[in-house]
């Protein structure tokens, strides 16, 4: 199992690299920063611009088309496939 889950609130969301939901800062400190960086550098090389690291979120603006919104999901799937191959 990959130690990760997604969280969404409104137009924002994030991948959190922990198995369990984060309830506070101490939970956040258990997240896997190496997996987060690997995913970020994999994504930016495929045209997915996200804030690096564990802190920030994705934002789907009112100008993202459905294809643009889903592009991140598709590249993320590629990353996970390689990670778990």
């Amino acid at each position: 199992m990959i130690p990760a889950h997604t969280v969404q609130f409104g137009a924002k969301g994030c991948v959190t690299w922990t198995v369990d939901p984060v309830r506070n800062y101490r939970d956040y400190k258990t997240a896997d920063a190496d997996l987060a960086f690997a995913q970020w550098i994999h994504g930016i090389n495929r045209g997915i611009l996200l804030p690096p690291g564990l802190d920030e979120q994705w934002l789907i603006s009112v100008m993202h088309t459905e294809e643009e919104a889903l592009r991140y999901a598709n590249v993320f799937e590629e990353f996970v496939d390689e990670l778990t191959a």
Partner: peptide, 8 residues
């Protein structure tokens, strides 16, 4: 909280 990913 949105400084540590999103913390509900």
């Amino acid at each position: 909280m949105e400084n540590i990913g999103i913390c509900l």
